[in-house]
Design a protein around this nucleic acid. Structure first.
Length: 269
DNA sequence: ATCTACTCCTGATTGC
DNA sequence: TGCAATCAGGAGTAGA
């Protein structure tokens, strides 16, 4: 399941196509999270790629006249094959053709998406997003202001992409553990000091994960090696009943907003 | 305006 | 061994 670091890693891997000419795009299955606009996609031929960037968990491929917006959803992956390769897989939904390679979007659960638009900044998926979690505009002052109007608990707040982007269920749990804050606390009661801890740990964990995510880079060139994400050590996520690495008390699991939350009752208040 | 429940989907795991 | 039930989760949407 790609979180922001995996998306960043994917973006870096496919950035090799910057400056290259996208010959055409083949859509094998348009039924992704949103139906792919095949009609417009078909008009793409011999289009030079101006840039490949990331915003939140979206990968943006900028062409001269259009921008492609890709979301990997839960199970989406991209892989690069030599143009002559026939190594197809189940759930290969979209193929991007270049001179010597093809780039394949594979997504078993189809929670991912592909959009094509003329103005990405106005696109409904991108227009209301909060700051990047590892950038300086996500800081303690910003967070302290933002929490005042929210009545939700800390974990739900962190996972809301309007507040800050890129934090999924796993990192929300890990960040709150590292910051020593309970996922059940109402976010509006956080002190300035708490906000600073959340921001500091977010920066640290996301940057560390991006750094480690880089080790999966080869996956995109070696289609058979499909493991390799979440190499960072998880302290709470998926560790119900196991000992807290800090105090040895058992890690608890609760359900918040239909999602599992893992935390240490003693270390997080 | 803000929050929560629901929803999409398939592979992996668990239970009988 | 096999089949069915359960779980996982990003994030938009409807409804409270």
């Amino acid at each position: 399941m790609p979180e922001l670091p995996e998306v960043e890693t994917t973006k870096r891997a496919i950035a090799v196509f910057e400056g290259q000419v996208l010959k055409k795009i083949e859509v094998h299955n348009p039924n992704l999270r949103w139906a792919v606009d095949c009609k417009t996609i078909k008009t793409i031929n011999e289009a030079k790629i101006l840039s490949i960037t990331r915003r939140a968990k979206y990968i943006l491929i900028q062409l001269k006249n259009y921008c492609l917006i890709i979301h990997l959803g839960m199970t989406g992956t991209m892989r690069i094959l030599p143009i002559e390769s026939n190594a197809t897989r189940k759930h290969d939904h979209v193929v991007f053709y270049f001179a010597k390679h093809k780039l394949i979007f594979n997504d078993a659960r189809r929670f991912g998406s592909l959009h094509i638009t003329k103005s990405p900044s106005n696109h409904f998926l991108l227009s209301a997003l909060g700051p990047e979690p590892n950038q300086s505009d996500f800081n303690a002052d910003f967070l302290y202001q933002k929490i005042k109007t929210s009545n939700t608990h800390t974990k739900s707040f962190l996972m809301n992409q309007k507040n800050v982007v890129g934090i999924g269920n796993i990192y929300a749990c890990e960040i709150l553990f590292a910051a020593g804050i309970s996922p059940r606390r109402k976010i509006k009661y956080l002190t300035k000091k708490d906000c600073r801890a959340v921001v500091d740990q977010t920066h640290r964990i996301i940057n560390l994960a991006i750094e480690k995510g880089g080790t999966t880079l080869q996956d995109f060139y070696a289609p058979d090696g499909n493991k390799g994400y979440f190499k960072i050590e998880l302290n709470v996520y998926g560790r119900e009943h196991q000992e807290c690495r800090n105090c040895q008390n058992p890690i608890k699991r609760i359900i918040q907003n239909q999602r599992s939350t893992f935390f240490c009752k003693k270390c997080q208040n």
